[in-house]
Design a binder for these strands. Structure first.
Length: 908
DNA sequence: GAGTTTGAAACT
DNA sequence: CAGTTTCAAACTC
């Protein structure tokens, strides 16, 4: 894979493919694909690595770029990222996007909440304005959000652009290739001190900017944003309500996040009051906590790494130009790890991890779109950022602190120069961030989103052949970088910096081995890292590059994403008319795990980590990585896909319920207890429009949960292909449960399944009421608490459904955003933890193969408005719409579907 | 926070 | 490819 690395510095090899016409650019594909239903297989334009299926173009790109190349780590150097990511971008993008979207949504929700409830005024920046609706109510907020998405995008693009140009660019931009940062453009090998100084200065400057207010935020983002066509489209869309929604969705391809968010917001809007209530309800917090907990899992190594990689990729892309000078070109490289000059202990501030910015992405690279989805890694990143950014802005504005970002903003030495290239920037610039001072929370959210996105992107990769073109663009050093994509790790502290960005803690590997998350991710270690004797720094670029090459020489795929969609094409063909089909199941861990003792239920297991990601991301849910035949694990209980099985969910449920029960009962029970269900079905289902779809359900009651769980499994697909909506089965499954509460606080009396005849999307919505009520229990925060209770089901259609359900969740979550950071932290989902759940329930739900028409439950929480909206479905439709066509192959536009269970999941 | 466990990465 | 060692994260206390 990752031819990149091999070619590495020389870049040329891959590059050939890379030169992709703008048309190929993801944006283009995305745009072309805007139609919600039709996924486009996307031309995949650029992605590819010519030769390689999925060479990490991104990474390679740098190399490719004549200009930049050098950048080395940053981008090119991490082949894995590039190729995998590139290939995976589609999916990854989705996921990322979804994540981002969810996060953004959450953030938005939070902001909204804050506005309404707290009444805090955001004086700050644009974001605030947008966000704040006159009423300040959720509805408005939601709408605003939607608007914001677009607006933000726009704004970010515009304002940010301007500002960026003005502010940030000047320094950096001027540098051009060096880009990355004005700072140490020459980063290469300069003495650390020099670098440090540079960085410090940059940082300080950034910080000051930030403090100043708008300028700051803008500064970061600006550079890239403006040109993005996508953004424009978005903005335009925004204006148009219905269309806009769709459009947004479509953008989702690139903008997945935004689209989701939008959709979510839209949905939410409808249910203003309800929504608000729900959000306010403590239950929501709990939900959020759960999510967070789940998300924590993501933070796991693998995930992190992936995330990092992702970032790297982006960076790479971005950085390419600047890089030019950098390592490769210079060639010094060869410093063996050992030989190198004194490693830096700990990281100094100077290096800030480059943050992937969509913008950056845009500029430099023309990244191949994700095949089906059209998302790109870049896009993902961008989207994420955008989403996050928006969120951040809002809140941040409130608070005013910006710390981390500010620092980051400082372009790391490493930071990859962002491109200005217009082409790619689909995503709205992360406007928010720059604008307001941020809250930690915001940051965390953003970071989470970013992380997720990154992780997803990282993991999920579709091999694509498209080349990515890196255009050297201006550097950026921009604000974008300021963000940390890092996944928040455990609260514990891991290594998170103040920023919340977490880094490695390597002591012996010098951060030049794959053991090092940073290195594995293709990024330089940052100040936040706790590593010792670190060589993974810009100063040692050569060394880093060499090392990478060495590693790649041994294992070309070493830096490649671990998750790959295998089935996509075949399935896709089957499913999607559009061809954009994506098989959720298809995504698998490249190598498979080798777990012996953890039963694949601990974060030690990469497959499990992936699983968690999906969980967390349920929105996107593309990954569906479960253990597969390729795994050598023993005693695997990975629900998502046991070894040898298709996936518990799908296969077992459908075909072998009994088996499932017996074998997986405990596991299932746990899951049920945890209240989390994942549905691949949607993904699998052709029916599902949404690509993303993986549905998560949180069950209120264990019993219910268990049932639900099973249902879910059943949902997945009937062997026959007809898909039965889980909710269909037992729509009501969830019950109230105050008692158990997985989500403790959140309980949903009823799950509402909403079918949008029009869209064919299905939504399940948990009862909002309970959410509110349950606020008491703290579940999420505590990892272990999850156990039972409320369920959220998101099923869905790609867009909408997700949006909705997700939206609802998100909303709630958002409220609690404060905790968002936590999301990622937890590891093992409660699922793992314990609690048996009745298997029986499962059977209950399952049965049919057909889809059931949607029960019309009332939409929860937002009941009034939302419900209406849901019921009507119109909003959903809009928003949901497009569903990122591209992202998920499996999706079908409407219900049709034939998909086989097989297709859906692959897990063996 | 220290120590243990775990599984990937690296090495043989 | 298999076995062993190294490593850092995950986990436990």
């Amino acid at each position: 894979m990752e031819m990149d690395s091999p070619n590495t510095s020389k870049s040329t090899t891959n590059n050939a493919a890379e030169s992709v016409p703008a048309q190929d650019s993801p944006v283009f594909s995305f745009i072309s694909n805007l139609s919600p239903i039709q996924p486009v297989k996307a031309p995949q334009v650029t992605q590819g690595f010519p030769g390689l299926n999925s060479p990490p173009l991104v990474f390679t790109s740098p190399r490719l770029n004549p200009h930049s190349q050098a950048t080395f780590l940053k981008r090119a150097k991490f082949p894995g990222l590039s190729a995998a990511k590139l290939s995976g971008q589609d999916e990854g993008c989705k996921n990322d996007a979804a994540v981002d979207a969810s996060e953004t949504l959450v953030a938005q929700m939070k902001t909204l909440r804050t506005n309404c409830i707290e009444k805090t005024s955001y004086s700050n920046s644009t974001m605030d304005d947008q966000i704040e609706s006159p009423t300040g109510c959720p509805d408005q907020f939601l709408t605003d959000i939607v608007n914001m998405d677009s607006a933000d995008l726009n704004i970010s693009a515009d304002s940010t652009i301007n500002k960026s140009e003005q502010i940030s660019q000047p320094p950096d931009a001027v540098t051009g290739s060096q880009g990355i940062s004005s700072t140490p453009p020459p980063i290469t090998r300069q003495s650390e001190e020099v670098l440090k100084e540079d960085t410090s200065t940059d940082v300080s400057a950034v910080e000051t900017d930030i403090k100043q207010g708008d300028s700051v935020s803008e500064d970061r983002s600006p550079a890239i944003e403006p040109e993005l066509p996508i953004d424009h489209a978005l903005t335009n869309y925004d204006q148009d309500d219905p269309m806009a929604e769709n459009v947004e969705v479509g953008q989702a391809g690139l903008l997945d996040q935004s689209s989701y968010l939008i959709s979510g917001s839209m949905q939410i809007d409808e249910g203003d009051e309800n929504f608000v209530e729900a959000t306010e309800a403590a239950s929501t917090k709990q939900v959020v906590k759960k999510v967070r907990n789940d998300s924590k899992a993501f933070q796991h190594r693998g995930i992190r790494r992936r995330c990092l990689q992702f970032e790297d990729a982006q960076r790479d892309v971005v950085s390419n130009q600047p890089v030019q000078n950098t390592s490769d070109s210079e060639g010094p490289t060869s410093q063996p790890l050992e030989t190198q000059p004194t490693p830096i202990n700990g990281h100094q501030a100077d290096t800030v991890q480059p943050v992937l910015h969509p913008r950056n992405m845009n500029s430099a690279l023309k990244i191949p779109k994700p095949s089906g989805i059209g998302l790109h890694l870049n896009s993902i990143v961008n989207s994420v950022q955008a989403g996050s950014g928006a969120i951040i802005n809002v809140k941040s504005a409130q608070r005013g602190t910006f710390s981390i970002r500010g620092k980051r903003s400082v372009p790391m030495i490493n930071s990859y120069p962002s491109d200005n290239s217009n082409s790619s920037s689909i995503f709205p610039p992360p406007v928010t961030i720059s604008a307001s001072p941020d809250d930690d929370r915001h940051e965390s959210h953003a970071s989470l989103a970013a992380n997720f996105s990154t992780s997803l992107s990282t993991y999920i990769v579709k091999p694509s052949n498209k080349s990515v073109i890196l255009n050297p663009v201006e550097d950026q050093s921009t604000p974008e970088e300021s963000f940390c994509l890092q996944l928040p790790r455990k609260k514990s502290s891991d290594s998170s910096d103040g920023d919340g960005c977490k880094r490695c803690n390597c002591k012996k590997s010098k951060c030049l081995k794959l053991y090092c998350d940073c290195f594995a991710a293709g990024i330089y270690c940052a100040d936040t890292c706790s590593c010792q004797g670190c060589y993974n720094r810009p100063e040692y670029e050569d060394t880093v590059l060499e090392t990478r090459q060495q590693i790649e020489s041994r294992n070309p795929l070493a830096f490649a994403p671990k998750i790959v969609q295998k089935n996509v094409e075949p399935l896709a063909s089957s499913f999607g008319e559009d061809g954009t089909h994506f098989t959720p199941a298809s995504a698998r861990h490249k190598r498979g795990c080798n777990c012996k003792k953890s039963m694949c239920l601990k974060k030690y297991c990469e497959c499990y980590q992936l699983f968690l990601l999906e969980l967390f991301l349920f929105l996107l849910g593309k990954a569906n990585v479960g253990c597969s035949d390729g795994c050598r694990c023993e005693g695997c209980k990975n629900v998502y896909g046991k070894k040898g099985e298709y996936g518990i969910m799908t296969k077992d449920v459908l075909n072998e319920e009994d088996t499932i029960e017996q074998t997986d009962v405990s596991f299932i029970e746990k899951m049920a207890e945890s209240g989390i269900e994942l549905y691949n079905t949607e993904l699998c289902n052709p029916h599902n429009l949404t690509p993303l779809t993986p549905a998560l359900q949180f069950l209120n009651n264990r019993d219910d949960a268990s049932k639900a769980w099973f249902h879910s499994g059943k949902f997945f697909q009937s062997p026959e292909s007809e898909y039965i909506a889980p909710y269909m089965m037992s729509p009501h499954s969830p019950r109230n449960s105050d008692d158990n509460a997985i989500m403790d606080q959140v309980s949903f009396d009823q799950e509402i399944v909403y079918d949008n005849a029009e869209t064919g999307l299905h939504y399940q919505i948990p009862n909002p009421d309970k959410w509110a009520n349950n606020s008491k229990t703290p579940s999420f925060s505590e990892d272990k608490h999850y156990s039972s209770a409320g369920s959220l089901c998101w099923r869905g259609s790609p867009n909408t459904p997700m949006a909705q359900s997700s939206g609802s969740k998100l909303v709630q979550v958002s409220e609690f955003d404060s905790d968002l950071s936590n999301l990622m932290q937890d590891d093992t989902p409660e699922i793992l933890k314990d609690n048996p759940t009745p298997l029986n329930a499962v059977k209950v739900s399952s049965p049919n193969k057909k889809r059931v028409s949607p029960p019309h439950g009332r939409p929860y929480g937002f009941t009034s408005s939302l419900s209406a909206g849901l019921r009507t479905g119109r909003k959903f439709i809009l928003k949901a719409v497009p569903s990122f066509p591209p992202l998920t192959p499996c999706i079908d536009s409407k219900n049709v579907q034939t998909s086989d269970s097989q297709n859906c999941t692959g897990k063996k």
